[in-house]
């Protein structure tokens, strides 16, 4: 095996801060992104997601702290040539409407030093090969977004920055987008996605970073966030008639227990106690008909972390 000479981390931020006058857009951000890793940035509009992307692209210079892309400052004149290794899909992408999709992609390919042959392939890969010779002004939002993705993939970038890539897309398109992202990840591309569509990102993120008002509230795998948040797990038991009260009594000392009618018991416990409780529930035998486990999802975690700040 050949060793890669370039062992620098794709993306590294240390105490990165950006202020405009009195407004702090980003505050002391520490973040790292490895090869083949996907990180989803969660945050409301105005949380600083787009500014973070612009820091990595070298369009915005940090007021304090360090930004490193493959170990180098992206804001220097020398970094301009290295931008070829970056693919970027802006939040609300705009194109020259008078051009056809193919013309436009060829134009951007030229600027990245990529031959025209790659364009047709890319257009087919994102599923707009048929519309490629029509003017972009006639295109739908979804098609434009696909074209945006195609231009971000020009020249096989090592880092992909996708700013709200799924906003306004239908479900089919979303899954196409995530399929493409998955295959790029498999090739070792570092992917940074910003989103506020909580439900869909969970499956596609190695790690999740929650950003609010310029501050990084939490960063880690969904599991790590769950442990950090220590939100309760809810077990809902369905039991045989009249058994609810006696079952509730058994667990009363170990967790918060509520009877819901004569046939249902709800147990609220810490995540760490979940398995012990489940074993004991299994030991109850025929009395328990069904168990429904409700683990906190990403939306609850997100609400938990962002609520802390507001309080």
């Amino acid at each position: 095996m050949l060793q890669r000479v370039d062992t620098a981390v794709p993306v590294e931020l240390q105490g990165a801060t950006k202020t405009y006058g009195d407004t702090t857009v980003l505050e002391q951000i520490d973040l790292e992104l490895a090869e083949g890793e996907s990180l989803v940035l969660l945050g409301h509009n105005g949380a600083g997601k787009t500014t973070l992307f612009k820091l990595l692209l070298g369009l915005v210079r940090p007021s304090a702290g360090q930004v490193r892309v493959f170990g180098e400052d992206p804001g220097t004149a020398a970094a301009v040539a290295r931008r070829a290794a970056l693919g970027y899909l802006p939040e609300s992408i705009a194109f020259d409407e008078a051009m056809t999709g193919h013309e436009l992609l060829k134009f951007y390919a030229g600027l990245k030093g990529v031959g025209g042959a790659a364009c047709s392939q890319l257009l087919a890969r994102v599923g707009i090969a048929e519309a490629a010779d029509r003017r972009i002004s006639t295109w739908s939002k979804g098609m434009r977004q696909r074209l945006g993705l195609a231009q971000a993939m020009l020249g096989s970038p090592r880092i992909l920055l996708l700013d709200e890539p799924t906003s306004g897309l239908d479900p089919v398109l979303r899954s196409t987008l995530y399929e493409i992202v998955e295959s790029l990840r498999a090739d070792g591309v570092a992917v940074l996605i910003s989103s506020h569509a909580l439900s869909e990102v969970e499956a596609h993120a190695d790690r999740i970073a929650i950003l609010q008002q310029g501050r990084l509230l939490a960063c880690g795998t969904v599991q790590a966030l769950r442990e950090q948040a220590a939100l309760p797990v809810y077990l809902r038991l369905a039991c045989t008639p009249q058994m609810a009260a006696s079952i509730a009594n058994q667990f009363d000392s170990r967790a918060v227990v509520r009877c819901v009618g004569a046939q249902q018991v709800e147990i609220e416990c810490a995540y760490a106690d979940k398995m012990n409780l489940l074993r004991d529930i299994a030991g109850l035998g025929d009395a328990v008909l069904d168990v429904d486990i409700k683990v906190p999802g990403l939306d609850e975690l997100y609400a938990h972390f962002t609520a802390q700040v507001r309080a």
Binding site: L57, L59, A77, V80, A81, R82, R83, A84, L86, Y88, P90, S92, I93, A94, F95, D96, Y108, L111, K112, G113, Q151
Partner: peptide, 14 residues
Amino acid sequence: EQGTMLLLATYPIT
């Protein structure tokens, strides 16, 4: 105004 400058500025050109 059109928003195309943002994308252009992220390409490897000065």
